[in-house]
Lab assay of single mutants.
Amino acid sequence: WLKDDEATHCRQCEKEFSISRRKHHCRNCGHIFCNTCSSNELALPSYPKPVRVCDSCHTL
């Protein structure tokens, strides 16, 4: 799980985070992405409801 202060850019699109481009953790891989690159939800065994995942984890 990557800490918020360790990420300054989206792991996928590499756009810089700002007040309007917020950080979101993928609940599967733990990396930090922008909203555009992590707008999917997936049912994971460790969560009772579908949770936010990055595009890469969603296509696995």
Rank of each mutant, 00 (worst) to 15 (best):
Asp4Met: 14
Asp5Trp: 03
Cys29Ile: 00
Gly30Arg: 04
Leu44Ala: 05
Thr36Leu: 15
Pro48Thr: 05
Cys57Val: 02
Asp5Phe: 06
Phe33Leu: 03
Arg27Asp: 13
Phe33Gly: 03
Arg27Thr: 13
Tyr47Leu: 10
Pro45Leu: 08
Cys26Pro: 03
Lys23Gly: 11
Gln12Ile: 10
Leu42Lys: 11
Pro50Cys: 09
Lys3Asn: 09
Phe17Trp: 04
Asn35Ile: 13
Lys23Arg: 10
Cys26Met: 01
Phe17Ala: 00
Gln12Asp: 11
Arg11Val: 08
Cys29His: 00
Cys29Pro: 01
His9Met: 09
Leu2Ser: 08
Val51Phe: 03
Asp4Ala: 03
Ile32Asp: 10
Thr8Gln: 12
Trp1Lys: 15
His25Leu: 13
Gln12Ala: 08
Ser18Cys: 12
Glu14Ser: 08
Cys10Leu: 01
Trp1Ser: 14
His24Leu: 03
Glu16Asp: 09
Thr59Pro: 06
Arg11Phe: 11
Lys49Thr: 07
Asp55Tyr: 05
Thr36Gln: 15
Asn35Met: 14
Glu41Leu: 08
Ser38Pro: 01
Glu14Asn: 03
His58Glu: 10
Cys29Val: 00
Lys3Arg: 02
Thr8Gly: 10
Glu41Trp: 04
Cys54Phe: 04
Pro48Gln: 11
Asn28Val: 06
Phe17Lys: 02
Ala7Met: 05
Tyr47Trp: 04
Pro45Tyr: 04
Leu60Lys: 12
Ala43Asn: 12
Pro50His: 05
His24Asp: 06
Lys3His: 04
Cys13Lys: 00
His25Asn: 05
Arg27Gln: 14
Pro45Gly: 07
Thr59Ala: 15
Cys10Met: 00
Lys15Arg: 11
Arg22Ser: 05
Arg21Met: 06
Ser46Glu: 15
Asn35Thr: 15
Cys37Thr: 02
Ser56Asn: 15
Gly30Tyr: 03
Gly30His: 04
Lys3Asp: 03
Asn28Ile: 06
His9Ser: 09
Thr8Phe: 05
Phe33Cys: 13
Leu2Gly: 10
His25Ile: 09
Ile32Gly: 14
Asp5Arg: 03
Lys3Cys: 00
Val51Lys: 02
Ser46Ala: 14
His25Cys: 08
Leu42Cys: 13
Lys49Gln: 07
Pro50Asp: 06
Ile32Phe: 13
Asn35Ser: 15
Phe17Gly: 01
Arg22Val: 12
Leu42Thr: 10
Ala7Pro: 09
Thr59Arg: 15
Gly30Glu: 06
Asn28Cys: 13
His58Val: 13
Ile32His: 06
Lys49Pro: 01
Asp5Leu: 03
Lys49Trp: 05
Glu41Cys: 09
Pro50Tyr: 07
Leu2Val: 11
Asp5Gln: 01
Arg22Leu: 10
Glu16Trp: 02
Cys13Gln: 01
Lys23Asn: 03
Leu60Ile: 13
Asn40Leu: 04
Gly30Ala: 04
Pro50Trp: 03
Lys15Phe: 06
Leu2Glu: 13
Arg11Lys: 15
Glu41Ile: 05
Asn40Lys: 13
Gln12Trp: 02
His58Gln: 13
Arg27Met: 12
Cys29Arg: 01
Cys34Leu: 01
Phe17Ile: 04
Tyr47Glu: 10
Ser38Ile: 04
Leu42Phe: 13
Cys26Asn: 04
Asn40Trp: 00
Ser18Asp: 13
His31Trp: 11
His24Val: 08
Cys13Trp: 01
Ala43Gly: 09
Leu44Cys: 04
Pro45Ala: 06
Cys37Asn: 06
Cys37Glu: 02
His58Arg: 08
Lys3Leu: 02
Cys10Gly: 00
Ser18Lys: 10
His58Pro: 02
Ala43Trp: 04
Glu16Lys: 04
Pro48Arg: 05
Arg22Thr: 10
Cys29Trp: 00
Ile19Gly: 13
Arg11Asp: 13
Lys23Leu: 04
His31Pro: 01
Ile32Gln: 13
Cys34Glu: 02
Ser18Arg: 06
Tyr47Asn: 12
Val51Tyr: 03
Ser20Asn: 12
Cys57Ser: 01
Pro48Asp: 11
Cys13His: 00
Cys37Ala: 05
Cys13Pro: 00
Tyr47His: 13
Cys29Ala: 00
His24Gln: 06
Cys57Trp: 02
Cys29Tyr: 00
Phe17His: 02
His24Met: 08
Cys26Asp: 01
Arg22Gln: 09
Asn35Val: 15
Thr59Met: 12
Asn35Trp: 13
Thr59Ile: 11
His31Ser: 07
Ser46Gln: 12
Arg22Glu: 12
Ile32Val: 13
Ser38Thr: 10
Ile32Cys: 09
Trp1Ala: 11
His9Phe: 09
Ser38Leu: 07
Glu6Met: 05
Phe33Gln: 04
Ile32Tyr: 05
Leu60Met: 07
Asp5Glu: 09
Ser20Gln: 14
Arg11Glu: 13
Lys3Trp: 01
Arg21Gln: 10
Glu14His: 09
Gln12Leu: 05
Glu16Phe: 06
Leu2Ala: 12
Leu2Lys: 14
Ile19Tyr: 05
Phe33Pro: 00
Thr36Ile: 13
His58Asn: 06
Cys13Gly: 02
His31Gln: 11
Glu6Tyr: 07
His31Leu: 11
Lys15Glu: 12
Asn40Glu: 08
Ser20Val: 11
Thr59Gln: 15
Ser20Cys: 04
Ile32Ser: 12
Tyr47Val: 11
Asp4Pro: 03
Cys34Ile: 01
Leu44Gln: 05
Cys10Thr: 01
Ser39Trp: 02
Gly30Gln: 05
Val51Ile: 06
Ser39Met: 14
Leu44Lys: 04
Ser38Val: 12
Leu2Met: 10
His9Trp: 03
Ser56Gln: 15
Val51Leu: 05
Asp5Thr: 08
Ser46Thr: 11
Arg22Ala: 09
Asp5Asn: 12
Val51Ala: 11
His25Arg: 14
Leu42Arg: 15
Ala7Phe: 11
Cys26Ser: 02
Ser56Ile: 14
Ala43Ile: 12
Glu6Gln: 07
Arg11Leu: 14
Gln12Met: 06
Lys3Val: 02
Cys29Ser: 00
Phe17Glu: 02
Tyr47Gln: 09
Asp5Cys: 08
Cys34Gly: 02
Ser39Ala: 14
Ile32Lys: 14
Gly30Lys: 00
Leu42Pro: 02
Cys54Gly: 01
Val51Asp: 00
